[in-house]
Amino acid sequence: MPLRADTPPATADVRRFTPLQRWIHRTTAALMGICIITAACLYVPQLAELVGRRALVVTLHQWSGLALPVPVLAGLASRAFRADLGRLNRFGPHDRTWLRAALHRDKRHASRPAAKFNAGQKLYASWIAGATLVMLGTGLIMWFTHLTPLLWRTSATFVHDWLALTIGIALAGHIGMALADPESRRGMRTGRVSRTWAEREHPLWRQ
C-alpha cells in the first residue's frame, strides 16, 4: 500500500525521525565508536604502543561501554521513539518476503516490501541490542574481578572478545549500507526524506 493519497505532492519531504531520535542515534554511535577505538588500542599491539596511557584507555572503554544503554533508556520518554521500537520489534509477512528477495539478490523494489523499517534493519537492530547487553554483562564481570570466580571471568573474556569482533564486522556492514544510500543518511542527519524515496524503499510506511 502506498503512502496516503491526501499527503503533499511527491516532491515534498516527509519526516522520518524527530530531533530526539537523531540524538539517540548519534550519541549511541559516538559511545560505540569510543568502545571500538579503545578496544583496538587495547588489543592491537601496534596501536597500544602508539597510544600508550593504557590505564586511561581502559577507563574510557569501561565508562563508554557502561553508558551505551543510557541514550536508549532516556529515549523511552519519547512517544515517537517508543513507537519506532514497536515497529522494529514486529516482524510481519512482508518482512519474510523482503528477506527472501534479499537472499536471492532480487533488487527489484516491488520484491522488497517494507514499512518504516525493512527486515534487514529490524534484524540488525535486534542483534545489536542483544549483543550490547551481552557485552555489558561480560564487561562488568571482567571489570569487577573480585566478585566472580575465575571460570566466569575466563568465559566472559572469551565471549567479550569474540563478540566484539562480530560487532565490528556488523557495524562495518551497517556503515557500508548507509554510505550506499544518501537519502537514508539525510533522513538520519536532518530527520526528513523525500516522498519519492519513501514510496520506493518503504511503500508500506504510512505517515
Rank of each mutant, 00 (worst) to 15 (best):
N89F: 11
V51T: 10
I36N: 00
W127I: 14
I36S: 02
A5C: 04
R195F: 02
L88C: 07
M135F: 03
S64V: 11
P9G: 13
R16Q: 11
F158K: 00
N118C: 07
R54I: 09
I141P: 02
A172Y: 14
A101D: 05
A131P: 00
V57R: 03
P45L: 05
T59Q: 11
C41T: 07
F91V: 10
L171W: 09
S111C: 06
I37Q: 03
W98N: 04
V72F: 15
L20E: 02
T38W: 03
P45V: 02
L99A: 04
M1V: 14
R79F: 02
C41I: 08
L103F: 12
I34R: 03
V44C: 01
R53W: 06
M135P: 06
I167R: 00
R82C: 11
I167F: 02
G130D: 01
G173A: 04
K122E: 00
R200H: 07
R186V: 08
A156M: 01
R53M: 04
M32D: 03
L3H: 08
F117S: 07
W152F: 14
M1S: 10
A125Y: 15
C41P: 03
H160C: 06
I141W: 01
S126W: 15
R189W: 12
L99M: 13
P93M: 10
S64W: 05
E49D: 09
Q62W: 05
R87Q: 08
A80N: 12
E199Q: 10
R87T: 06
H160G: 11
R4F: 09
P93N: 08
M1E: 04
L66M: 10
L123D: 00
R26I: 15
P69T: 03
R53C: 00
R26Q: 09
D6H: 12
R90V: 10
W152P: 00
R206K: 15
V51R: 09
G139V: 13
R105Y: 06
L3W: 05
L68Y: 07
R112F: 15
R206P: 02
S184Q: 11
R53H: 09
E183N: 15
R54D: 10
V58K: 00
L88I: 10
T148L: 03
T154E: 05
A170V: 15
I24R: 01
G65R: 02
M188F: 14
A101C: 08
A102N: 05
T59I: 06
I128M: 13
P45T: 02
A80I: 04
E49S: 09
P71C: 07
L31A: 09
A48P: 00
T27V: 13
P2T: 12
S184W: 15
V70T: 06
N118I: 05
A178T: 12
A80H: 13
D6S: 10
C35I: 14
M1Q: 09
A30Q: 02
M177Y: 06
R195E: 00
A101F: 10
P203T: 07
C35P: 00
A170T: 14
M32L: 13
T190G: 01
T166E: 07
R100D: 03
I167S: 02
